[in-house]
Structure formats: structure tokens, C-alpha cells
Computed example of a mutant assay.
Amino acid sequence: MSPGDGSVVPVMEVGGTHVTAASVDLGTRGLRFGRSFREVVDGDGSTGDFVSALVRAAAHVPARGPVRWAVALPGPFDYARGIGQYEGVGKFDALRGFDLRAALTASLPGAAAVSFWNDADSFVLGEWWAGAARGHRSVVGITLGSGVGSCFLRDGRILRHGPGVPPDGRVHVLRYAGEPLEETVSRRALRRAYARATGASPPDVQEIARRARQGGDRAAVGVFAEAFTALGSVLGPLLAAFEPTVLVVGGAIAGAWDLVAEPLRAGLTAADRARNGRIVITAAQQPAEAPLLGAAYLATACGRPHGLPGPL
């Protein structure tokens, strides 16, 4: 099987500092040869820098044209038109109004078309299709990093409204203590909270987590406890209404799962002990691969007449 025969989908996942490219084998629900390829992306760079980084990553993927590439990336982005809408989010400002679909269709190897998908949606679909949420009919997934991404699934279909679903399915629009949720739960919020607690210049989240685990740093432990108890208290009423059987957590900060899980569960339980106590709360099974797998799934499934079907 090779990209171009329909059984393998060439994909990319764009983060704030990197792009990862791979081929997804639809038959095995995994990466072809178990490999992906990463290149650095400068979130403050020009459109030319951005496109060049994606093209360099894609060059590692054997794609015999014509093929349809699938790209997962964060919003705000017009996924249908392939045009950036970034403004005031601290990255990718150069892509605002830029036709990324046209640029990539002209530049990616073998590209006949390029589809774009939200990275949080892709992550959760990947975990449902081939990861920690496989076998679950009702799923909520969140990603923790520069912000809070989210996706609400039922029978493999993304829900944008309904009981327990926030506006457009996006948890980041909610508020905590009178402020946007991401002022409490995000990379910048954790660093700011640590700086306030210590009076020192804050290290990155990975170092704060290390200090919490190894150094007995009470401020570091408190930063994680407060942030993720707060997240649980915000998610609790949503999950009680949506009634998922599993909550899957991914993103860079989920790498500190030992510091995230307990306060998150405590916040959820305090919000609704009876119902949220039955939900499986788990870290992603395929944290790096899930966005790639989900983008391939979406690109394939959404080409069918009735949208997303059950598992392929």
C-alpha cells in the first residue's frame, strides 16, 4: 500500500512550534512503518517560512500523486476555505487572510487537494478510532497546552451543540472566576501562577512539573492542583449533562498526567459526584499520533455521503 491508492492517507499536524508529517494506514489504524517526521515551525515567521516548514516535513512522506493531503492545525482558521484567521493569539499572525490551501496544493508532493481539520477534533477522533476512547460511544476529549482544546463525540460524530456541549463544542470560550478559562488553564497561566507564588521568573511548565515531583516545591504542586481542580469544576456540569463514558486528555501539559489527574478528578467529582464519578478519566493512549490518525479519519469519512460513519 502506498499514498495515492486510497488505503494510505498523507497527513500533517501543525503545533505552535512544530509540524509532524506521516502516512496513515487506514487498514491498521496506525502510521505506516510506525514513523513520523518533524520539522520546526516558527509561529512568528512569515507565510513563506511557514509553508517551507510544512513542505520540508511532507518531503519525507512518499506520496505518489494524485493524493489528498489532510492537515490538522489549531484555530482560529477557516477550515472549509483553508484560510487563516489568526489575530492576537500569539502565533501565526502572518497567516491571517492567507490562502494556505492554494499554497500547499501547489507545493506538497503529489497533492491533488488539501483538507484542513481542527487539531483538537483530530486528536479526539484519533483516540476514539484507535486509542484510549476506542469502544466508547460517548466521548469528551480535551487538549492542554497553549490553551484548552476540546471535542464532544457521540457514535463518532462531532457535536457542536446540545445538552452539555459548550458553544461550537469549544471549552475555551467558558469562564472561571469571572475570567476566560484559559487565564487559569494554559501554559501561560501556569507560568504566571508560579511567578506570583514564588516571586521568581517562571520556568516552562515542564520544569514546574519536575519541581513538583522531585523537589518538593509546594508552589509548583499548588499551581497544578489549583489549575486542574478549576478545570474539573468547569467541565463537571458539562459532563454531567453530556454523559460521556470517557474523558480523554492530551496535549503537551498532559505529559504531567501524574500532577493533572487527581485535581481534575476532584474538580469533576465536586461538581457532580453521582454522575461524574462513573466517567473513565484517562490520558491519551497515542498522544503524538492521535491528531494524525484523526485527520486521516476525518478526511476519509467526511468524503462519504452522510458525513462521519462509525469506525472505519
Rank of each mutant, 00 (worst) to 15 (best):
F50W: 09
F50Y: 15
F50N: 06
F50D: 02
V51I: 15
V51Y: 05
V51M: 10
V51T: 13
S52Y: 03
S52C: 08
S52M: 08
S52I: 07
S52W: 05
A53E: 09
A53H: 11
A53N: 09
A53P: 06
L54D: 06
L54C: 05
L54P: 00
V55N: 07
V55S: 05
V55I: 11
V55F: 02
V55W: 02
V55A: 02
V55C: 07
R56H: 13
R56D: 12
R56Y: 02
R56K: 15
R56F: 01
R56C: 03
R56N: 13
R56I: 04
A57I: 13
A57T: 12
A57C: 14
A57G: 12
A57N: 13
A57H: 06
A58L: 11
A58G: 11
A58V: 12
A59I: 07
A59M: 10
A59C: 13
A59G: 15
A59L: 12
H60I: 09
H60L: 08
H60P: 03
H60R: 15
H60Q: 15
H60N: 15
V61R: 05
V61E: 09
V61G: 10
V61I: 13
V61H: 10
P62Q: 13
P62H: 12
A63G: 10
A63E: 06
A63M: 14
A63V: 09
A63S: 15
R64P: 04
R64Q: 15
G65D: 08
G65E: 11
G65Q: 13
P66D: 13
P66E: 11
P66K: 14
P66Q: 14
P66S: 14
V67E: 06
V67F: 06
V67L: 10
V67H: 08
V67S: 12
R68I: 07
R68A: 09
R68L: 06
R68K: 12
R68H: 12
R68N: 04
W69L: 03
W69N: 05
W69E: 10
A70P: 00
A70Y: 02
A70F: 05
A70S: 13
A70Q: 06
V71W: 02
V71L: 13
A72V: 06
A72R: 04
L73E: 02
L73S: 01
P74T: 09
P74W: 04
P74Q: 11
P74Y: 07
G75Q: 05
G75Y: 03
G75P: 05
G75K: 06
P76I: 09
P76Q: 12
P76E: 08
P76V: 10
P76Y: 07
P76C: 09
P76G: 09
F77K: 03
F77T: 00
F77E: 00
D78M: 02
D78T: 03
D78P: 00
D78H: 01
D78R: 02
D78G: 01
Y79I: 07
Y79W: 07
Y79H: 04
Y79M: 08
Y79A: 01
A80Q: 15
A80C: 05
A80M: 10
A80D: 14
R81F: 01
R81A: 08
R81I: 00
R81D: 05
R81C: 01
R81P: 00
R81W: 03
R81E: 12
R81T: 04
G82R: 08
G82K: 06
G82E: 04
G82S: 10
I83E: 01
I83K: 05
I83R: 01
I83Q: 02
G84L: 01
G84E: 00
G84D: 00
G84A: 03
G84K: 02
